[in-house]
Design a protein around this nucleic acid. Sequence first.
DNA 1: AAGTGTGAACAGCTTCACAGCG
DNA 2: CGCTGTGAAGCTGTTCACACTT
Lengths: 278, 278
Amino acid sequence: MAQRGQSDAAGRPPRAPAENAAEITTPMPAIGGNGMPAPGLRDRARAIPEAAVARLAVYLRVLSGMREQAVASVSSEELSAAAGVNSAKLRKDLSYIGSYGTRGVGYEVEVLIDQIERVLGLTREQSVAVVGIGNLGHALANYGGFPGRGFPVTALFDVDPDLMGVPVGGIPVDHIDDIPAVCAAREVTIGVIATPPAAAQAVCDRLVQAGVECILNFAPVVLQVPETVEVRKVDLAVELQILSFHVARRADHAPADDATPAPRVDGVAAPRGVVVRR
Amino acid sequence: MAQRGQSDAAGRPPRAPAENAAEITTPMPAIGGNGMPAPGLRDRARAIPEAAVARLAVYLRVLSGMREQAVASVSSEELSAAAGVNSAKLRKDLSYIGSYGTRGVGYEVEVLIDQIERVLGLTREQSVAVVGIGNLGHALANYGGFPGRGFPVTALFDVDPDLMGVPVGGIPVDHIDDIPAVCAAREVTIGVIATPPAAAQAVCDRLVQAGVECILNFAPVVLQVPETVEVRKVDLAVELQILSFHVARRADHAPADDATPAPRVDGVAAPRGVVVRR
DNA sequence: AAGTGTGAACAGCTTCACAGCG
DNA sequence: CGCTGTGAAGCTGTTCACACTT
């Protein structure tokens, strides 16, 4: 069952193009003075680098796994190894959210989980709407329970008449035109676009209209949105092309050797300072 | 139809954890001397920043769209606007791959497409294997033709006996145990992991065994791989959590205003120096 | 006159290394 | 004594601004 087609609509009003990650460092254009390196006291979610936020999410998952295995505390060394980063980076990341470790000992798993969840805003549930109920949309709708709670999918949309009202993963599918009404009613805060490229911008417009300010876009299109809206893009083709680049680079650099697949590692020179603790 | 379960296997040998992007700048551990800022003449794919590679893929798509509409040439201003980046960045990105523009004029669409494809290694087709034929796997298998040619999916794997031999998107599904044989036979260069988390590492091991050196991982797990293997991760939960973080930050900063969705932009203070040229 | 290509300044992120605390 | 937390150094990537070419 392939993705459904959706007709594009309406000319688009002037908007800023949305870029993805690693650029905006949790913007916060000069509220007080500046140059205050220490954590601002009153507002919690201050200048946490975007890159650190992404990793915090990873730490959270690893920590959840540890909790399940009844691990009570971890050192930065252990946690960083499990998360695939180096320990200094991990400690710095954690320092952005506060000082919850015990020197000479490590971190309490439970405490860290709570704190990361707080910073990521996972205490308040975020209602998610998925638009475009093709294969990908189905996969997303069924994702249901995430690593913990946190992201209930509460609305599904498509244009295919055959899908209207049909429940997918327990949620009935509504028509795209109802996005504003339904999203408002269900207090959707995050919209996921899983439509064909041609429909993406129109869908995005409707989501924005509905007051959704955070969008995850799977369509291979650069969405134009107002600056108040945060867009993240997941682009399969781009990912593959990046990998392709690496294949090509490899081929250029090592035109020889081909056999001996899966070389055992262990004593192989570490590229940077990555400590592999297990 | 949810994703199939797969039993994990074998204890994992020591390997380095795989991190994602924005860190490795197209590694190339000291072949000659160093400190040579100018582009090395002989090997083409030199130090192109990973971030730039990702954007080149985006430019490529935009350019393809332009070619379809019979656009013959573009200025950096136009192209950058369409790609959602600023023009200086675009020019710098393009400069990494060579000087293919005409001063005072712009770039020839055709030429740029060819050059970017060359650098990304898209001239040589990359055979892709998808492991885990759940909803996501289906979606990926059917992705079939990408923006242009380039990534034929030539192998599918799962553990579900009901799927064995069943063609999905034209390709019959094989058993996970056959990964080494099938991948070798079909010269797979890129493996995509779309299995449940518990199976991901085992699948990854088999892919590596099969000689696959580039992996795109959709499972929410930090894969351990030899250093010779390039892993990119697409993590839905992480993406949502990053968005959640932004929702939370927003709520903290602007506890007021709620109505007036979709505010018109245009004269609104640009956060950094983003030029919104249209 | 227009727009590319790029050195140089800048900003953000990562890594180091060690002071400080339990 | 061990491990956290963090200033400071280093590096990568972004932005600026302008010389240079057509």
